[in-house]
Design a protein around this nucleic acid. Sequence first.
DNA 1: CACAGCGTTGAACGAGCGTTCAACGCTGCG
DNA 2: CGCAGCGTTGAACGCTCGTTCAACGCTGTG
Lengths: 207, 207
Amino acid sequence: MAPAQTHASADRRIEILKSAAAAFRRRGYHGASVDEIASALEMTKGNLYYYFRNKEEILYACHEYSLDVLLALLADVRAETSTPDHKLRRLILAFVHLLLDELQATALTIDLQALSPPLLRKIIARRDEFDRGLREIIQQGMDAGAFAPGNPKMVAFAVMGAVNWITKWYDPAGPMTSDAIGQAFADYLVGGLTRMSGSSVPPPAAR
Amino acid sequence: MAPAQTHASADRRIEILKSAAAAFRRRGYHGASVDEIASALEMTKGNLYYYFRNKEEILYACHEYSLDVLLALLADVRAETSTPDHKLRRLILAFVHLLLDELQATALTIDLQALSPPLLRKIIARRDEFDRGLREIIQQGMDAGAFAPGNPKMVAFAVMGAVNWITKWYDPAGPMTSDAIGQAFADYLVGGLTRMSGSSVPPPAAR
DNA sequence: CACAGCGTTGAACGAGCGTTCAACGCTGCG
DNA sequence: CGCAGCGTTGAACGCTCGTTCAACGCTGTG
């Protein structure tokens, strides 16, 4: 009946990850204490070690979880049969939504480099996978002439930066809902690439 | 003869700040040890306390220094008598250049929230000043019809995010020079806003 | 009722790190 | 030459925090 759980109460593990992600976002990996993560859940820090081997494994699991979610989204968008600009738009909208409403605004922002090399490599490999997917969409748009020509790698980095940076200023109590932010970002980041007609309008004045 | 120095060897202080900024970027504020900062300069950690009261003051000075540089740039650009799109373009180009070549790729990225409230407030006030300046330029462009209409606050956040994020992936030994990155980002981030004619072309297809 | 084992506790340990400080060498001035 | 003081040293202290672990309660099963 209950959903598949590899070992001990997977739900509890996820609660811990959410608390940890929030703490890591606020204070950074080294700044957040294990005790702080536990207290927020009204458990003792010793108890965390029943679910995770150590603090690093918690960080690793946070990144894994975020990447699971984001790569699933990417696969979803890729499978669509629509134009690159629709794909990019949907990707940004959903990314912002996931980031703010599901991932404790934390996804790819927290200290990757705190991980030891073997774990680090695994995370980087998957993050690169996401990057490549994003670049592919942008490249397709450029090839089709729907997007202004440019370096898709740089554009992808710019998009990722703009979106991930939201973490730094977003205030759930602020005037902008996560939806409104997503719309505004998609408008700017996709609209800015899109050339009016289906054909070749020259790139903007600036050289 | 020597340039103005408030107290003890200002040059030495700046060397320390550079080392600290680099360490903070790699490991984060809490992850970087005072000893690590000192060792990189072949000094002992005790000696750092001759120049700074404590670790927090070093972090504070890093932010102050970065903001000095960036606000000077902003004032410079503001004083120009050119169109908003030229201003924005120049701001981005120079920001990228400063960030990568002068500020150890560290500017606004390092744990602000590690600062105690009084210091934090001072930094945030100046960062907001920069934000306001950026928004103002964007607003002017929208008012003049040179930029597509939108929420200038969101656009400003997106630009700041894209640029500051460079820190996370930039590799001085990589294929892209800081200049090339600046060009690519300015093309995308400004070009994306710019509407073709001087007048009112409707915003892109997507709603 | 007895037993098993999962989830939990809280105390204790040990390492790392920020910070302090008394003492030292070096440089330049009187 | 002797003195003053700046810049530097390195050892020591104390606190925080990650991690360990033996012991405990609770729940459900035989």
